[in-house]
Design a protein around this nucleic acid. Structure first.
Lengths: 140, 140
DNA sequence: ATCAGTGCAAAGGATTTGCATTACA
DNA sequence: TGTAATGCAAATCCTTTGCACTGAT
């Protein structure tokens, strides 16, 4: 089920209206790659006349409908990402940058771990905290 | 290495002083169980004369020294928790049970991923959501 | 003695909210 | 047409910062 369909279902099931603004936010979210925050979304949607207030009021709907998930804050802003994106994070403790990565070996091994424990995986989230290459240089 | 020792090492390595306020925050953090935020910590440390500003200025030191980690926000506040000792979670979507596990192969592979990206890991958190063996039986 | 660390209060900035208006259903 | 949704701007409130003072080395 794609994001649009899922969002419509969510609205219908909860007696909420599919308005122009909500459609715009949906499209804004779908257009995002990687992490994004309310402010970025607002910049992209200003030209369509969507206010920041509406974005802040709308984001929770997308979280609840399973289209996006909240991630760690960056630069003081709450961030989100598409819920379906199966990638993991390297989180720099010094500069706060979050580097996305995807490693097939890691995924395979996780599946093996699950199998050996009779666990059926659906989704996962992995974050590794430490120091990115640039910051690593600064400390030594 | 326990939190106190680790914090002292971190301060020494970075030429920072071990002050009364930092000692108080350290004790406040160690006393916390589960999630906590700056405000909670401040309430607990007011009687020791530690200001909110100091707490906000000190928390990053604990994050960087690997004693605590940031978690998702709750009620608009940034939350933290004690950095766990490298075990991961299988989270059952049906019964809610959280099964801890530790897999050396997974750790090794994570280290390799970091190495290949010039990233120096300190800590990580992995949660795999899915269905535990018992619940798996119920659905089929 | 020196300079990092702290408290206080003011500033900053993301997020929320009240209210009049607009537009879905 | 009735009511939820929106925009605007003011209000909130978490977090950061400037500054003068205090205390650790």
């Amino acid at each position: 089920m794609d994001a649009t369909e899922r969002f419509r279902d969510y609205l219908r099931e909860n007696g909420l209206a599919l308005t122009a603004a909500r459609r715009a936010v949906l499209e804004g979210i779908v257009a995002c790659t990687g992490h994004f925050d309310a402010d970025t979304l607002h910049s992209n949607l200003k030209k369509r006349g969507v206010s920041a207030a509406t974005i802040y009021r709308t984001l929770p709907l997308f979280v609840k409908s399973g289209i996006i998930t909240e991630t760690l804050r960056e630069k003081g802003r709450t961030c989100y990402e598409r819920a379906s994106s199966h990638h993991d994070h390297l989180e720099c403790l010094m500069c706060g940058r979050i580097i996305e990565f995807k490693d097939d070996g890691l995924e395979k091994l996780q599946e093996a771990v699950c199998r050996s424990r009779g666990f059926t995986p659906v989704d996962h989230h992995l974050g590794i905290r430490g120091y990115c290459a640039a910051c690593r240089k600064k400390i030594r």
